[in-house]
Design a protein around this nucleic acid. Sequence first.
DNA 1: GTCTATAGGGGGATAGAC
DNA 2: GTCTATCCCCCTATAGAC
Lengths: 190, 190
Amino acid sequence: MIRNTNTQRAILDLAESFMQDKGFNGFSYAHIAAELGVKNAAIHYHFPTKEVLGCAVIKRYRDRFQLWINNARVKDLSPQEKLDWFFSIYTNTRADNGKVCLAGSLEIDFNSIPTSLREQTEALTSELLTWLQATLSEGRDAGVFHFNGDPVSKAALILSSLQGALQMARALGTGKYYAVVEQHKQDLLA
Amino acid sequence: MIRNTNTQRAILDLAESFMQDKGFNGFSYAHIAAELGVKNAAIHYHFPTKEVLGCAVIKRYRDRFQLWINNARVKDLSPQEKLDWFFSIYTNTRADNGKVCLAGSLEIDFNSIPTSLREQTEALTSELLTWLQATLSEGRDAGVFHFNGDPVSKAALILSSLQGALQMARALGTGKYYAVVEQHKQDLLA
DNA sequence: GTCTATAGGGGGATAGAC
DNA sequence: GTCTATCCCCCTATAGAC
């Protein structure tokens, strides 16, 4: 019973890692099996199809984000601290062997993934955007963030930029990513 | 002789289109052959390996950008007009069946493409960044753009955001992309 | 739950005829 | 320059033994 849970979790961990490293179409059951020290077919026992596995990865990622933002440790932070926390998600992603944002990775493969994964991708991106927009609003109302226009647009700008910066860092190095984060802070706090 | 040129060009056009649609690992020689009405092997005659084909696509893309920015029609524009022209590249990309930035697409697949393609990707991204940074500097010196910090960082922020916005638009629709572009203009011109 | 074995498809690439 | 035919590899997925 416990093994079941552990194996499933290990598979999800590896799949998530591969998706952020090589994209949904860039890894196979064999890759996971090799890392786990089992055979191809064993993975199919836990996740019958790759589509099911991919959906489970994104769903878990979404649930984790919701848990975080509803937890007092994030919920009770100041707007600036919330923003720093959000940036730290991406910074940690970058630090973890140059991984990229899960949403961005899926959006690149968007035209070659099953419909159910597209729906999950859409939901994930929406949820990130919603939280960021609310945080920007809160910060502007509190007088700590300064920007013109709709918080919805500014949130889309920041999220798209973090997504893109993780990708750009692969070609041009980590420095580019950090430069973008610092520039966002300057833009918001100036 | 002329047919040779035309066929090669048609192959490059299709490969470029597929790369922006499905990524380098998301299309095959068979896809190109089918669109072109020839057989698999015919493509290999013009481009012996997929690596060679991919490099040629990026190289042509880079050369095209250099031609554009060195042409008087772009070179003699005002900073605002230059920026609008740059945005229009991405807007047209989005309008063309929801394609994404070639650089972003390659950066996602970065860990599963040949070294020669990585080098081309790096060069492409650098060149885009260099031009954008110079344009931002020029605009700030002229008093029309307003932003704090290093133009290099601001350029990375804008480029990464355009890249990400094209991807985000796949999940959430074209409106998100346009919102990001408008927000950039507000941020720069305010 | 995991194994062996295998089916069935698609991919990149090559040889040799035309 | 393009064709047919083919090789070999990797992929997703399944059947049935243990």
